[in-house]
C-alpha cells in the first residue's frame, strides 16, 4: 500500500469518503478503519459515571468493581470493534451495463482470510446491506446505485461498517474504488415501427453485395422463390433449403440517428435504443448508424452491445 503524505493523512474527507479511488484490492488496516462511540456508547459512558457516583456515595467496593468492569468492557470493545473489520480484503468486481433510471449493480468481493467470523457487517453504497462472513471465506455482495443519465455512471464511496459486539462503537471504513458502469439510454416507451429504408440508400458506399452473392442457407418456407431452392441438397434427400443472397434486404433494417423521431438528441437516442432492443428480440439483422459511426447489419449480443455502447457514449 502506498504511503500517505502528511497532508493526506489529516484530510477530513478520508474519514467519510475514503482515500483516492483505486482498482486494486484493499486490505483494511488501521489506516482505513475508523472508530467512534455511538450514541449508545456515550450513554453507556454516562451509565458508568452514574455507577461510579453510586459507589462513591455508598463507598461500596463491589459497586466500584462493577463500575470498573463495565468501564473496562467499554474500553476493550474498541479493540473488538476494530477486530470486526481488520484484515478484510475488499476487491471490486465487474459491473454490468444498465439502462438509465435502473440501478447499476457493482459487485464487491470481500475476503476474510483469517480464522475470525465477521458478524453483522454493513456495507453501503446507497442502501445498507448486511452480511456475515464465515472464517476463511469469501463473499460477494452486489451494491446498487440508481442511475439518471446515460454515459458512464461512477459510484461513490463504499462504506463497510459494524457495531459488533455491543453497539457501543461504530467502526467503519470508507473505500473508494473506480466503480464505473455504462448506462444505456432509457428505451423509449413508445413502440414505433422500424424505419423504412429505400434500398438505394444502403447500396451507397459500402455494400458490395449483389443479387448473386450467396449468403447462406435457411430452411425453406412457403413463399420463398423457387429459384432459390437448393435443389442439390434436396436431391440428396437432405430436405428443402432456400439459398439466401445478401441483397435480400427485405429482412434487414437500418437504424439511423437521422431517421429517429424525437425533439432532441436524448429522445432520438432513446428511440434508437428501443429499436435496437426490439430488433434484437425479433432477430432481424440491423445496421446501425450514428453520426461518425456505422455498424453493418448483424445480430447477436456482441452487436447489440456495440450499438448500445455507442448510444450510451454518444
Amino acid at each position: 500500500m502506498n504511503r500517505l503524505s502528511l497532508k493526506e493523512r489529516f484530510q477530513l474527507s478520508r474519514f467519510f469518503s475514503g482515500e483516492k479511488a483505486v482498482d486494486e484490492p484493499v486490505k483494511l488496516t488501521h489506516r482505513r478503519i475508523f472508530i467512534l462511540p455511538t450514541y449508545r456508547g456515550l450513554n453507556f459512558a454516562i451509565l458508568t459515571a452514574f455507577l461510579l457516583l453510586m459507589a462513591f456515595v455508598y463507598n461500596n467496593n463491589l459497586v466500584y468493581l462493577l463500575t470498573f468492569l463495565l468501564a473496562s468492557i467499554f474500553f476493550i470493545t474498541i479493540l473488538h470493534s476494530y477486530k470486526a473489520l481488520a484484515g478484510l480484503v475488499l476487491q471490486k468486481g465487474q459491473s454490468k451495463p444498465v439502462f438509465a433510471g435502473e440501478a447499476a449493480g457493482f459487485t464487491i468481493y470481500i475476503n476474510n482470510p483469517v480464522d475470525v467470523e465477521r458478524f453483522n457487517l454493513q456495507i453501503k453504497l446507497e442502501q445498507p446491506e448486511s452480511l456475515t462472513i464465515k472464517p476463511q471465506s469469501k463473499t460477494c455482495v452486489t451494491l446498487y446505485s440508481l442511475t439518471q443519465k446515460r454515459g458512464w455512471h461512477t459510484a461513490g464511496t463504499v462504506t463497510l461498517s459494524s457495531t459488533y459486539p455491543f453497539g457501543l462503537f461504530r467502526v467503519w471504513s470508507p473505500i473508494r474504488f473506480n466503480l464505473k458502469a455504462l448506462v444505456y439510454p432509457k428505451p423509449s416507451l413508445q413502440e414505433r415501427p422500424f424505419p423504412e429504408m429505400p434500398s438505394t440508400n444502403i447500396q451507397k458506399g459500402f455494400s458490395q453485395k449483389g443479387t448473386d452473392d450467396f449468403y447462406g442457407l435457411k430452411g425453406y418456407q412457403p413463399g420463398d422463390s423457387i429459384k432459390h431452392i437448393h435443389w442439390k441438397a434436396f436431391a440428396k434427400g437432405q430436405g428443402l433449403f432456400s439459398k439466401q443472397y445478401s441483397s435480400d434486404s427485405s429482412e434487414e433494417i437500418w437504424l439511423n440517428y437521422d431517421n429517429a423521431p424525437g425533439h432532441n438528441t436524448e429522445e432520438r437516442l432513446s428511440q434508437l435504443c428501443r429499436w435496437v432492443i426490439d430488433a434484437e428480440r425479433i432477430g432481424i439483422p440491423y445496421g446501425f448508424s450514428l453520426p461518425g459511426l456505422k455498424l453493418s447489419p448483424d445480430n447477436g449480443t456482441t452487436h447489440t452491445r456495440k450499438c448500445l455502447e455507442a448510444l450510451a457514449l454518444f
Partner: peptide, 18 residues
Amino acid sequence: ILVQAIPMAVILFILFPR
C-alpha cells in the same frame, strides 16, 4: 469479553483513589 475486561477492572479497583 467480560473475562478480558477483568484484569483491567482489577487494576482500576486497586489503583483508583478511594
